[in-house]
Write a protein that binds this DNA or RNA. Structure first.
Lengths: 124, 124
DNA sequence: ATAACAATTGAACAATTGTTCATATATGAT
DNA sequence: ATCATATATGAACAATTGTTCAATTGTTAT
């Protein structure tokens, strides 16, 4: 566990301490774009209003905008703006029936992701 | 601001408000604080630099600040600031040995959460 | 046609966030 | 003691975010 802290240079010229570890991770690194998209996915879940929306959609798998607003206690406009964020990030999908738009979670990964987040919070 | 939600569902099902669904979810609603903490957990993962840090710590389960900076290609200062965010949100823990601080993911839920995020991104 | 309704959108605003640079701790070596 | 290294922190700044209000779109009913 305790290693020599002597400074080394990796092939790419960055100064580091444990060269093998550094180059091992660098070799498996994903493209820049990948991390941006991943971060955006988490960002979509990083607002309390949006976590409430997702929670509601976990409980009832299809809800209209007005009902989500009623559950959470905010304006339709606020919910609609947040749903657009979730829609853009492919976290929710929708189904329009007449005047009413029903939203639901996009796929099972979203349920799992959210459930894992719940578990982390409930343990701390 | 809540008056519209008093609207009742008609027998013919014309109304958009589905009162049973709404009250069913409302009854299972968690406290405000819960959603704030949950959102903050996701927020901690919502920056590309931080997703890279977490990715690196998934590959090698213990890394020092300088090596993380070398892997990602940014300054030690930037990494240190981001590690503080992750530390505050209990996503990482650390172990100081002499001058060197080794960071690792705090618990298995973080690995699971991150892995589920990866899966979502890789499918889209 | 008009009215009522469900949802979306645009603009403006305050609040928050991430980065950079410089400086401050803290430990180990000389 | 001084120097070098490893990390942490503070302050300032631009960029982004979430909310609100007002207006708009699209649908259904009369």
């Amino acid at each position: 566990m305790i290693k020599k802290t002597e400074k080394k240079k990796s092939k790419s010229g960055f100064s580091c301490i444990e060269t093998e570890k550094v180059s091992s991770v660098r070799n498996r690194m994903k493209p820049e774009q990948f991390f941006h998209y991943l971060a955006e996915t988490f960002r979509a879940m990083s607002d309390p209003t949006r976590t409430k929306i997702i929670f509601a959609l976990c409980m009832e798998n299809e809800l209209c905008v007005r009902d989500i607003a009623a559950i959470i206690g905010t304006s339709n406009s606020a919910i609609s703006h947040q749903l657009r964020t979730l829609r853009n990030m492919k976290l929710v999908k929708y189904n329009k029936v007449g005047k009413v738009t029903y939203y639901s979670l996009d796929d099972i990964h979203i349920n799992n992701l959210f459930a894992e987040g719940l578990r982390h919070v409930e343990e701390k």
